[in-house]
Nucleic acid binder design. Sequence first.
DNA 1: CACAATTAGATTGCGCGCAATATAAATTAT
DNA 2: ATAATTTATATTGCGCGCAATCTAATTGTG
Lengths: 152, 152
Amino acid sequence: MARKSAADFPLRLDNQICFAVYSTAHAFNRVYKPLLDKLGLTYPQYLVMLVLWERDDVPVKEIGERLLLDSGTLTPLLKRLEAAELIKRTRSTEDERQVLIALTAKGEALREKARAVPQSILAASACSVGELVAMKNEIVALRNRLNAVLGE
Amino acid sequence: MARKSAADFPLRLDNQICFAVYSTAHAFNRVYKPLLDKLGLTYPQYLVMLVLWERDDVPVKEIGERLLLDSGTLTPLLKRLEAAELIKRTRSTEDERQVLIALTAKGEALREKARAVPQSILAASACSVGELVAMKNEIVALRNRLNAVLGE
DNA sequence: CACAATTAGATTGCGCGCAATATAAATTAT
DNA sequence: ATAATTTATATTGCGCGCAATCTAATTGTG
């Protein structure tokens, strides 16, 4: 008779990949916190800035699509970034439903200070870039399968 | 000259494992939502119930250690579970600082309805138990390295 | 053209997650 | 034994994350 494996205890906390993901997301948040405090950003705000540093002057919708967030989350977050003078929010003239998000000079400048962040995270994760990339690809593949189920 | 790899664009959103973990946690949440709605639980509440279904009559502290959550999160959450009559909260007589959490009959009974949840999640993740266990172990190892950095 | 349907974003409400602080009980030091 | 320290939980405040609802603009249809 085979030894009982994890699959035989599906309700055990330690056997649940979702808890592994959930608690790792919190761990990342805690590691990021002191780094992002220096930039005056929260982690979700940092994600929005990453999107804008790649390409500027995008509608809220597009930011939401990249980060998988809706307007209920983004609208107040973007207002806070605007209050911090990192971005500008302007109604599109072509389509007045859209609000375009653009970086201010201050928002652009913050990019330089942010360059130090990824290497600090890499150091904290204590493994090679290759391992991280491999793990990231697996996790993203899992996420995409989960999201595919939701779309049905 | 070698082709540029992910490591050469550390600020790109798609290269960040933290975003992979963050967005996968949200994806799990969305998949869980309709399943847990039937049980009348949120995902964090479900995690607390998992802990209690393993072992009952534990102090808040122990739940916090297993889930990596503090009293600021747990106290109101536990009060809501108490309001739903799934648990009882009683001051320990041995150590009056502690509050012991015990399942009610209703809380015990909910375990049976919860048995269907893990297999639904497994189906949604669309991969084998073996693959999931391997991925889970990698992610937990990463989480533990991140948390180790925080403890310094 | 009018009118229905869709789309982008804003608003409200609720439940985390966590920092900061408070309180009361237990432990340790003196 | 008294005082100082530590520990367990509670409270407050803020920023997400998301469901539900609302408004205004655009698109589609007869």
